[in-house]
Design a protein around this nucleic acid. Structure first.
Ligand code: FES
Ligand code: FES
Lengths: 146, 146
DNA sequence: ATAATTAAAGGTAATTTTGTCCTTAATTAT
DNA sequence: ATAATTAAGGACAAAATTACCTTTAATTAT
């Protein structure tokens, strides 16, 4: 479904939303450990999420790290996909045609369309905050711990 | 969603089901041209589909090529995914956890589950024949022609 | 039998994705 | 000021995917 980069981006953002605040920033090492991702690769992805502070924020130096603002927590998950450039999933044809279109549909288009709509809905309506709180309250998992 | 290999496999099989018969086999060149795919790569994928004649059949030599039996046309699209080893999509966690599980669900599991079920249903209930006839009758597209 | 045709099979190459490492810049604590 | 800490940024490396090419095997037509 998603690339590794996107999976790490989603898990990392959920973790940051669970654990960070402006006064308690999280280090790359902590985040990567918490979500079972390769630290160096995760660093690249966090950079994308930090770009223009569009999803998360960061500060360098001692006691620095990554955090998310209350305002950013209200963003839908879709913004995470946009930040890692995987937003186009929802425009793609399931059979790989260059354009998914109503006027030149593939043989699965009209059956796939409602499913795609539900996927879009899932990522557009759920905010980072909602999902991270749910994960917190219901003990849901964002790593492969035993 | 799918890999290129899977996209080509689906489009190729639909085309073969539309145009071939035991008396009229299709060459690799014709198939690749018809579905806008790289011929050499497509050859590898057709080999997978031909393995054990599980989805399509082939014969070498003059007037040889690829075709599909009436019996194989009754197989669901899911068999194509299995042939190219992309069947595991439907077991995967949307956040990339090693296992998608009810007992250790990720924060999106219960919202993603019904969508995944619809995807599975789509590929399990539609047969190759149904989709290829639909494509034929309704002039649906399996290439990027203008 | 021979030549022509076509897929099978294997190796190789290009590209993309994933992952690592090292240096630099920013910030903080001393 | 200096040293320590942490992310940013760039170069590099490994792995997977995608794509190509050449040889071989099978089949058919002559
Ligand atoms: S054209 Fe294939 S999914 Fe829309
Ligand atoms: S555990 Fe993530 S989708 Fe099921």
């Amino acid at each position: 479904m998603f690339s590794k980069a996107t999976e790490y981006a989603l898990r990392a953002t959920i973790y940051i939303a669970q654990k960070s605040s402006i006064t308690h920033k999280l280090s790359l090492a902590e985040i990567a450990a918490a979500i079972d991702s390769p630290p160096s690769f995760t660093a690249k992805i966090l950079q994308l999420l930090t770009k223009d502070n569009c999803v998360i924020n960061s500060v360098r130096g001692p006691n620095g790290g990554f955090y998310i603002t209350e305002k950013s927590k209200l963003l839908p998950l879709k913004n995470i996909l946009e930040a890692v450039n995987e937003n186009d999933l929802f425009d793609k044809c399931i059979l790989g045609l260059k354009k998914c279109s109503e006027t030149k549909p593939c043989p699965l288009h009209f059956q796939y369309k409602p499913i795609k709509q539900e996927l879009i809905h899932l990522f557009q309506t759920n905010t980072i905050q909602e999902i991270s709180e749910k994960a917190d309250n219901e003990y849901l998992f964002i790593n492969n711990s035993i």
